[in-house]
Nucleic acid binder design. Structure first.
Lengths: 135, 135
DNA sequence: TTCCTTGCAAATCGTTTGCATAATG
DNA sequence: CATTATGCAAACGATTTGCAAGGAA
């Protein structure tokens, strides 16, 4: 199944590259729609899936129901705020060590790792600190 | 919201403790149903969610569509075979280091990590090696 | 012209929820 | 008795898919 060029796919990929907040398919849709008012959500999903399958983008399963997409395919970790739901990048040296150790200990073939941290982001900590400390 | 005892919940939790393959809600349902033929899938979901919220079990997002559940709440990693879909445990020393480093580097509050490795499990490697090497 | 991609809508899948009834404390 | 849990079915949200028409090679 050869892949042919499409403006929609290019636009989706371009949009994703401008964002570092790892948007969901629906967010991609809402934004790309401003340039292509007739694009359908199905097309967005089809292209995100195609790009992810070809390794041109990353599909993240952060556990909040919807998948998130990341144009940065270099190896890195993610953080998800349990309060506001934001998804951010996290660069950790010892991620490589973890992979190395896993490959040594495991008797199958390891190809990738997904590392997803959970907690409260700095912004949410700030905001709750500034309110009356009831909660 | 106080929690009251229920046989169904107990059975679900017990069942989960006998398995180390991290079953999905539906697999739990199919099995518990043999003891409680009238139990509903909704009840299974409600109890799995309740147990996970109270930290008595783990809810895993391995990226295959369905959530998986794990009765072992100690910190450990997981591996998912892209071929057969099996989910297995992986104990890695440097997982603690990763958390430590993340907490140092990050300006929010980090509470947990999910580490999920992907690749081909030993069984699937074996099986494909034994077949005529066409694929 | 051939094959891929699109838009649209309907379908699918995993999960949640409303409600009347049953079980627990 | 007050409250929580259940079974059932309907509702939901995210994602996929079938199909006829449009676009790329």
């Amino acid at each position: 199944m050869a892949v042919k060029y499409s403006r929609q796919r290019q636009t989706i990929h371009n949009f994703l590259m401008t964002r570092k907040d790892h948007p969901t398919a629906d967010v991609v849709y809402q934004n790309v729609r401003q340039e292509y008012p007739h694009i359908s959500l199905g097309t967005v999903y089809r292209n995100l899936t195609l790009l992810a399958d070809r390794g041109e983008i990353l599909r993240l399963h952060v556990g909040d129901g919807a998948d998130h997409f990341d144009a940065d395919t270099s190896r890195h970790s993610h953080f998800v705020c349990s309060h506001c739901g934001c998804v951010t990048d996290l660069a950790l040296d010892c991620l490589e060590d973890l992979l190395t150790q896993a490959k040594q200990d495991f008797d199958g073939r390891i190809e990738a790792v997904d590392t997803c941290f959970h907690g409260i982001c700095a912004d949410c900590l700030d905001t709750s600190a500034k309110r009356t400390p009831i909660l």
